[in-house]
Design a protein around this nucleic acid. Structure first.
Lengths: 108, 108
DNA sequence: TATATATGTAAGTAATTACTTACGCAATTT
DNA sequence: AAATTGCGTAAGTAATTACTTACATATATA
């Protein structure tokens, strides 16, 4: 069972969940109130998010508050950032990139 | 059928394909030589990548050369960048972010 | 022209995904 | 103590995914 951040954020519901709890930790019921699906479905999405480390849960009595571990997004950010020079017009950045990588531009 | 960039890059094989053709446009056979799966499977991955706009195909005789349209990655980059301030230590950046958004920090 | 090459696609399949309802359990409230 | 609340999870299901093999088509080569 693959459980990586790329797969976790592939689902639009899970991205919405992250948006929702980005600024404010919420418990599970509060999260599911924002969606047109069962609490159980949300619970299962949260499970996937915690399994890949994107969300952590803090128990408070019978409630579970979910919060985002943003640094996990860095895995995705880094993968994308290596290509940013190709879609911006900053050719200076490309030059920096190339020299930083000592012109080792061969893939694989 | 969902066909967005988030879903396209969720698959590790497709990310490898992008890595492979990032610096050098390759035809389909050249791409599949790098993988332990059938040419047909790679062809289907390429189809998904083209359907979401991440890859375009240029015909040359009987060959089809695949190249990455990097700016499509911007959709993902932007979604992630909004959270970058939360995982870097740059609190100045956070301040800038907050003021830039006029302190409208409520999700949804 | 016959053959080889490069590719697309249909059909089939096993595994995975994204849900649902039902149930159980722990914590809280009455 | 009994009822309510918050949550996790099992089981079932329909749709999707990631492959496979087989076949069709267009282009290039002998």
């Amino acid at each position: 069972m693959r459980r990586d951040v790329f797969q976790a954020i592939a689902d639009p519901t899970r991205r919405e969940i992250i948006n929702l709890i980005a600024f404010k930790s919420l418990n599970l019921n509060a999260i599911s109130e924002n969606f047109d699906m069962s609490r159980s479905a949300i619970s299962q999405h949260i499970k996937i998010l915690t399994e890949c480390g994107l969300v952590t849960i803090k128990k408070e009595g019978r409630e579970r508050f979910c919060e985002v571990k943003f640094q996990k997004l860095n895995e995705v950010a880094e993968w994308i950032e290596q290509y940013r020079v190709f879609w911006t017009n900053k050719l200076d950045a490309l030059a920096v990139h190339l020299s930083a990588n000592e012109l080792n531009v061969k893939p694989k």
